[in-house]
Each structure stands twice: as C-alpha cells, then as structure tokens.
Amino acid sequence: MGCTELTCILCPQGCQLTVAGRDGEWTIAGNACARGEGYALSEATDPRRVVTATIAVTGAVIPRLPVRTAGAVPKGCVLPLVRELHRLTRSAPVRLGEIILPDALGTGVAVVASRSLPAG
C-alpha cells in the first residue's frame, strides 16, 4: 500500500497532503478544502503535465522554435518527449499552432508551435 506526500498547488496555502491506498480506495489527509482532495486524487492516480520545450529551426532570425503540447500528457512522458523534441528540426516560416508532432509518444496529444517565426 503506497503513501504519497504532496504539496497542494491550488492556492497559496500549500497544504501538505498525504495520499494512502490504491485502486479506488484512497485516503487523503491534510487538505483544508474539497478542491485539495481532487488535486491529491489526480496527482496520485494520473498526474499530467503540459510539456513545453524548444526545437531547432532553420531559416529564421533565431535558432530555436518554442513548442508545447496542446494538452497535458502523463507525467512519465515529460522527459522522453523532451528528448524526442530535441531531435527535431523545422524550417521557417512556422505559424503559431502549426502541428509539430501529431501524436506525442502515443498519448494522442499533439505538439504544436507556440510562436510564429517568419523566414528571414
């Protein structure tokens, strides 16, 4: 039976939460409000993050293009995804929102350009 310690990020109070149990039987302690319970549960069962990184770009005034996942991906994907992105190169022009990877590591979430970069 796992026991996880978390800091709640939903308000400046920063409650220290404890999540114990597994598979639908969770005991959450330390939260001052109901929102904290939801946060603890999602962090314990399926923590997700939006990933932001840069990829190489040629033919633009700067050498890096900022990119982001269109939604949150499982936390475990963050580092492998960034490594994959670091291998990519695009050439300018690039439009904001243009798809860089349609399906990041099989998560079903796309990686898109987060800035327009004209050629030049």
């Binding site: 800091t7 709640c8 990020i9 308000c11 920063g14 993050r49 963050v78």
Partner: peptide
C-alpha cells in the same frame, strides 16, 4: 509561486 515549486523542483 507554489505551482512552480512543485512542478519545477518536486517533479
């Protein structure tokens, strides 16, 4: 911000 402490350091 707390969210940065958690998502940038704790993670």
């Amino acid at each position: 911000l707390m969210r940065n402490v958690v998502q940038c350091l704790h993670d």
